[in-house]
Design a binder for these strands. Sequence first.
DNA 1: TCTGGGGTCCTAGGACCC
DNA 2: TCTGGGGTCCTAGGACCC
Length: 418
Amino acid sequence: MPPEQAASSTRRIAHLDMDAFYASVELLRYPQLKGLPVVIGGGRRRDDDALRQRFGDALADIPVAAFPVLKDYVGRGVITTATYAARQFGVGSAMGLMKAAKLCPQAILLPVDFEEIRRYSRQFKAIATSIVPLMEDRGVDEIYLDFTDVPGGQREGGRVLARLIQKAIHDTTGLTCSVGVAPNKLIAKMASEFNKPNGISVVHEGDLQTLIWPLSCRKINGIGPKAGEKLAGLGIQTIGELAAAEPQWLVAHFGKAYGAWMYEAAHGRDTRPVVTESEPVSMSRETTFDRDLHAVKDRAELGAVFTRLCEQVAADLQRKGYVGKTIGIKLRYDDFKIATRDHSLSLPTDDAVRIRQAAGQSLKRAPLDKRLRLLGVRVGALSKRDAATDSSDKKTPLAQTAPAQAAIHFEAQTGWLF
DNA sequence: TCTGGGGTCCTAGGACCC
DNA sequence: TCTGGGGTCCTAGGACCC
């Protein structure tokens, strides 16, 4: 083994994944639903608001029969999380709710309570970092932890420490998680799925052939639906088969970077560190309409939504202290095709009016003949507000800039108010 | 019965500069 | 007159992840 890998092979990296996180958080509130098929998802509607008004604070006393069920749901939306009882029926994350209703009409449907989710997310991460300080945030319900230099972090390959963290999280939140511990992030991520829910799996270097190679290539974090299909078309299903492929052949089919990475991944090699701090690259807001909108016929409605999205993303930037230089829009048409347009400003901004203006310019450059399903606004090329030269208290009035003059002129001519 | 919302990273061509 | 590289920024699209 080369010396640079001898060092990395002694690393112990954990991947911790909260079990059915969104659903489990709701079950803390509504313990009467434990063991029943429950799905979290959908939009805007809040049927349980009515429930809470009827039953006050005694949420645990609400009879099961009073909860909304999947078969009564109408509209767009997908499942965020399903309880394990619901998964028995074949429903799961990212499935359309209307499809899920066919498979499990009796499942109870609850909306996402983002505030509550974020509260529990902060809580479990705080508990984890109090035990293992080196944590990488991978979203609301997932983290990586570096056990390597933690006292006792190597005992039983990390199992002892994993159990301690699992218990600490359960004791204070009532939530369970699954943990995989391995020599690197790639394997730890796969390992955390071996024993779900509430499981711990420890994988060592020597377990590669027995535990990893029989798995589907799709289990590798970074091989998605497209690459998985392409590999299958080339006769490669398992990670072992991928590992046996010629690296040059993979490069020929998947490109230099991706092909070479695939080969390394199949051999369980990954030297990425656990990254504790990172700066955001972009912030965005988007919305899917209840019905597809037409740029001309539904102009007023579209314009109002557009303004709201700009205001929301501006508020997000201001709240978090960022300004951005690249303003863009995203459209999803009724055929699900996506178009994006963006434009870079000379000075970064967090101002809703300027964002609205730049985004409006971008929107005009996009095809608007087909019906629209989704509209989004994105601000990229972010920097910290304090570090930026543009002071946010000096907001340029809409009509002062030359592009704005041109835009107003254009709008006057066309009747468009984007 | 179609398929949410918030992100990251990569690629690739053209502009522009050295 | 033709022929070069490299580097960076901008824009559009796409794969992938949670």
